[in-house]
Amino acid sequence: MSAPESDSSQPKAMRSTAEVRALLEAIPYCQFLGITVEDGSDGGIVSRMRFGEQIIGNAALPAIHGGAIGAFLETAAIVEVLRISPAGGALPKPVDLTIAYLRSARAVDTLARTIVTKHGRRVVNVRVEAWQDDPARPIATAQGHFLVARDDA
């Protein structure tokens, strides 16, 4: 998955990975989950949830809690919306999210990328994909809508 070409309805100004990282570092729950961002190989942004004992859901497997994966997918969507939004706006608000759990999330780091499917004036539609070792073997995907406040709206 890669970032879509910017269209005319989309603001030109984008946040850098460092700027998005600074925003994430101010969010307590993202810090608790161990979520950070890095540059993707395709010029986009990749979210990472570092494995930690505090996100284990099933200690016998062991596997990461489905809720932590859901929170990570939601955060990865917010990260991408922030990246393509001009600085100064409020955080995007989740409206709905549908998560498909494809494989058990093992006790290692999890990565995620987001495609903005449609960037409307008020609502953004996103698709998120999360994987661990192999991007071709996703562990979970999500699709959802976020409310955004646009200065030009």
């Binding site: 969010i27 729950y29 993202c30 989950l33 859901g57 809690h65 489905g66 809720g67 932590a68 859901g70 929170a71 990570f72 939601e74 955060t75 989740p94 999210l97 998560i99």
Partner: peptide, 11 residues
């Protein structure tokens, strides 16, 4: 965070 609600409901 919305993820807290997701986690609560999933569990």
């Amino acid at each position: 965070h919305g993820g807290v609600i997701t986690t609560l409901l999933d569990n």
